[in-house]
Amino acid sequence: MTYHIQLTTRDGQPLEFDCSPEQSLIDAALAAHISLPAQCCQGSCGACYASVTAGDYLLGEHNPAALPAGNANGILMCRTTPCSDLSIALPYDHAKILFHTVPQRLAQIVALESVAENTVRLALRLDSDADNGGAAEFEPGQFMELEIPGSTERRAYSLANTGNWDGLLEFFIRLQPQGRFSAFLRERAQPGMKLMTRGALGAFGIAEGSLRPRWFVAGGTGLAPMLAMLRRMAEYREMQAARLFFGVNRESELFALAELERLKAELPQLVVEICVWQPQGEWPGFVGTPAEALHQALAEASVQPDIYLCGPPRLIEAAEKAAAAWGIPPDQVFSERFLPG
C-alpha cells in the first residue's frame, strides 16, 4: 500500500511520488529519483523542513529546535511517514531539487589555518575525475559533507566560496571540544591529505528572483554561507541593496574581516555591521547579538528586506522573532541552523 505525495515548490512547481506508511518522505522521494534538500536524516538539523497543507502523517522523533516555531503543520521530511495522501509545500524553489545522484569526490587539503579563536579555515581542492572533471559546481549557501578519514562518519559544513573551475572548496569551521571532525582537524589534518566529500547539498541560498534588499544575519561561522552569497553578488555584479550583521561572542572570534572589506569595495551598496556580544575591550562597534542589531535596523527600514539567517538555533529564533515583530512575512526569512551532530 502506498500514498500519493504531492509537493509544491516555493515557485509553484508540482512534483509527485508514492510513499508507503513505513517509508520516510525523504527516502520515498529518493526512490523516485527526487533528491530533496536534507542533511542529517535523523530529525535533528532541519534541512528537510516543509509544511503539510493537506493529509495526515506521523512525525517521528526529532529535535524540536530543528522546526521553526509557530508552524503547526511543519514537518521534517526525514522523520515523517504518511497516514494518507499528502500535499506538502516546500520552502524552496524547484531549482534546489536534484534529480541525479549526489556526487562523492575525493579532495585534497590545500590549506588549514587558524583564523580566530577556535575557528579554522579549511580549503580543499577536488580531484579531477571522468564524470565531473575538475570543476566545483555549487550554489552559494549550499554545504558539503566531509568524511572523517578512516571512518564513514560525515559532517556538513557550509561553503564560503562560490562555484569555480579550479575545484576549490572553502570552509570556516568552529572547532568543537567534543567534535570528531574537529578532533581530526586539530590532531591529524594537514595539507596534502585526502578526504571524501559528498555534495553540494542544501536549499539555503539567495532568492534570486526577489528584488527586495538582502539582509544577512550570521553568527560565528554562520558567516560562511553569507560570504558565499556576497561573493557571488560581487562576481555577478548584482546591485540589490545588501546588509550583513555578523556577530561573535568576543572580539577574538572575529575572522574574515579583510574579506568583508574587499567585498564592501566590490559591492558599494553593502553595509556591514560587526556585532560583539561580550566585548573584552573597548569595542567601537555594535555591542550585542546580530539579532538585536537586526531588530534595531528593521525599525528604521523603509522597505521590508529578505532576511538570511545562519548560526546557532538561539540566534535563528531570536532573529526570526525580530523579523516577525516588524511584520516581515515568514516566506521572506530563510535560515540555516547549526546543530551539534
Binding site: A135, E137, E139, G163, G209, E235, Y236
Partner: peptide, 23 residues
C-alpha cells in the same frame, strides 16, 4: 529554467538573462 545539474555552467549573453546565472 536552468536545472540544478547545469545551473553553474550555463551562461547568458546579449538580451538573455536568468537570475542567478552568470551574464
Amino acid at each position: 529554467e536552468p536545472q540544478p545539474q547545469y545551473r553553474q555552467r550555463i551562461f547568458t549573453a546579449g538580451p538573455v538573462g536568468w537570475p542567478g546565472v552568470r551574464h
